[in-house]
């Protein structure tokens, strides 16, 4: 079931074309990554999607039709940066925002207590929002977006200002919501977070769709001419391998033009190498992002250095 359908939207501000042609669909219950460099039009796209801005052209369907006052209560939104009253106590701020989403004050207070506890904000509930650290404010904003149990959550840069522990906390929360069937649209430029969480992505640049689809498919599509192997033995010279790069505990074999991974595998087996792992090396989303945004052609394997150049796609159930 499609929760959000955006079709060829355009939006300009004066002479600036913020969104030129963006289309995508979000299925119910999925975590959808909306990616793009700064100024790509992500936030404008979200605002058009949420009916905060009217599009100059194109259509938007959200939760089965046009946005309505009733639907606002079914949506949780966390704008990038700030978005909370600064001069009032945290608890009062969050309860007020939740009551505007249809919760009663008592219900909002009760739910809030649990979330504040979960996010270690309970001791700070009576502090003014401006007295909280950036990370605490970020967590508070996330709570504001989910407190009313929305069907659809849109979060803009959810991991900004969070330390690794809190980042993991938010990730776990998102996966928990995902398991409950909540649809999440996550706008970010932190690609590795998207890789861990998202099912599908849309990459926009200069207000247009650039990449759209299933994350694994995209990565395979952008996969270069290389394989990743893991073995205790020394890898011998193989004619179909152009170069060998050590990559953490594995080894990346960059293939010569015209050769195939099957040929490399046959050669390794013929050399009596015991393999613990053999797989196609897939590019990270970061690399795809840079490549697509910079308009480059194929990935330049020779420029890749040791380190986390490639990752193995996470298997999803």
């Amino acid at each position: 079931m499609i929760q959000v359908q955006v079709s060829h939207i355009q939006k300009s501000f004066g002479n600036i074309k913020a969104v030129q042609d963006v289309s995508f669909e979000v299925e119910k219950g999925e975590i959808f990554g909306l990616l793009g460099p700064n100024g790509a039009g992500k936030t404008t796209t979200i605002r058009v999607m949420l009916d905060i801005f009217k599009p100059d052209a194109g259509t938007v369907s959200i939760l089965g039709g046009a946005m309505s006052e009733e639907k606002k209560d079914l949506i949780g939104y966390m704008p990038e940066e700030r978005g909370l009253y600064q001069d009032i106590p945290l608890e009062r701020c969050l309860v007020y925002l939740a009551t505007l989403k249809g919760l009663s004050s008592s219900e909002a207070s009760q739910r809030l207590g649990d979330y504040l506890d979960k996010f270690d904000l309970l001791p700070h509930k009576n502090k003014k929002v401006k007295e909280l650290s950036k990370g605490m404010q970020q967590k508070a904003q996330i709570i504001a977006a989910i407190l009313h149990d929305p069907e659809l959550i849109i979060i803009d840069e959810p991991f900004t200002s969070l330390d690794p522990i809190n980042t993991q906390l938010v990730k776990d929360l998102m996966l928990e919501l995902h398991e409950k069937g909540v649809t999440i649209i996550m706008s970010t430029h932190q690609m590795h977070q998207v890789e861990e969480l998202s099912d599908r992505i849309l990459l926009i640049n200069e207000g247009r769709n650039v990449l759209y689809g299933d994350l694994d498919s995209i990565r395979r599509e952008y996969a270069g001419h290389a394989v990743m192997v893991k073995t205790e033995q020394t890898i011998p010279d193989i004619p179909s391998v152009e170069s060998i790069v050590q990559h953490n505990s594995a080894t990346k074999l960059i293939l010569t033009e015209g050769s195939s991974p099957q040929e490399v595998l046959s050669s390794l087996v013929a050399e009596d190498i015991t393999l613990d792992k053999f797989e196609i090396a897939l590019p990270t989303l970061d690399e795809i992002f840079i490549k697509v945004v910079k308009g480059g052609s194929d990935l330049n394997w020779s420029q890749l250095k040791n380190g986390n150049d490639y990752i193995i796609p996470r298997l999803r159930s």
């Binding site: 006052e69 940066e81 009253y85 505007l100």
Partner: peptide, 16 residues
Amino acid sequence: SEKDSRVMELLLLSAS
């Protein structure tokens, strides 16, 4: 101040 702090964005998505 609501406009400056972007609270307005949340309010607009909660009320008309």
